[in-house]
Design a protein around this nucleic acid. Structure first.
Lengths: 168, 168
DNA sequence: CACCAATGTTTGGTGCACAAATCCATTGTG
DNA sequence: CACAATGGATTTGTGCACCAAACATTGGTG
């Protein structure tokens, strides 16, 4: 790492004149989607013994923090479409980690609650973050820095939501 | 039981003792998938006038760099499964940006070539990187730094591919 | 009380993404 | 030449992910 931007001064004119702005390798969007797919792929063998996919793991994390959750609340915490979560939660129900009941005070909304099995799974899941840090070869500080950077990107992307269809 | 690994060395002891390692908000994997989805979402309104989805845009970038490409080559450059690309490329053919012919010297492999329309699209696409930088409010250095960080994550994730199913 | 708007969930449609199985042209090897 | 083995592409199956439309329950309001 260690920024080599020593002689950053004035864009080092000649240096970057040949760069194609449409070059695939230089696209941040490509790098970030690859990184995301790579991380999810790295989780796969670790989550597999728990019978969880990565998005399912995130749902379980949310439920371990607070258990009766509505679909809407879950959707907002995970920043995922309700239409995405609905079948996903059903799959988690069919593997036995949660139950989908209706909230007594408002029959419109779901009350998604952990089963005993789902609650018990948390013990085994405790090991996941450590295993992943080790597998990826990151220390606590790397994790912190990466997390901060990603949250900044999330922020930027969210802020840019306003812009309607661009005219090109 | 002995889990809590005490106040290990330089972990700023008291400061982070209450942190739940399974807290959703602290998961890097969550941050990175959110960031990725956010970025792709930010591209959507910009690519829509070009009738391209984000993965399709990446395919076009690859083809603008080198035009007759086989599916295998494309798959390796984009780090995407051939099974993912096959239908995607067909969709790009049906929108008229490319043609899928067979390589004359080896009838097994595809020769994916740009059509005139596909080649012409590059002109309009020139504007995309600038528009996106502006929409996201990033300057050239931000982009460089983010790109470098993501490539490092790609690297780490790729390196960790070895590890078989973890036993938890 | 009946109707209407708001809220939460579900459904349908399109498009990734990966893994495994299949198909087919090519390239050995006997 | 015949016949395996290989290698590239496609298909199939499962599971996200988003959008828009349909649906149902609530909660007003005339």
């Amino acid at each position: 790492m260690s920024g080599t931007r020593a002689d950053a001064g004035a864009t080092s004119d000649a240096a970057r004149q040949e760069v194609d702005p449409l070059a695939l390798e230089s696209q941040v969007c490509f790098a970030i989607t690859r990184a995301s797919r790579g991380i999810v792929a790295a989780y796969r063998p670790v989550l597999e013994p728990l019978h969880l996919t990565h998005p399912q793991y995130l749902v379980m994390l949310a439920l371990w923090q607070e258990s009766p959750l509505s679909l809407k609340e879950l959707s907002s915490r995970l920043a995922l479409d309700p239409g995405t979560l609905s079948p996903l939660v059903k799959r988690l129900e069919s593997t036995g980690y949660l139950e989908r009941t209706r909230a007594s005070e408002d029959e419109r909304s779901l009350a998604i609650v952990l089963t005993d099995t789902g609650r018990a799974l948390r013990e085994r899941a405790q090991a996941v973050p450590g295993i992943m840090r080790e597998r990826l070869g990151m220390d606590e500080d790397d994790v912190q820095a990466l997390h901060a950077g990603m949250m900044k990107v999330v922020e930027l992307a969210a802020r840019s939501e306003q812009g309607g269809p661009a005219e090109i």
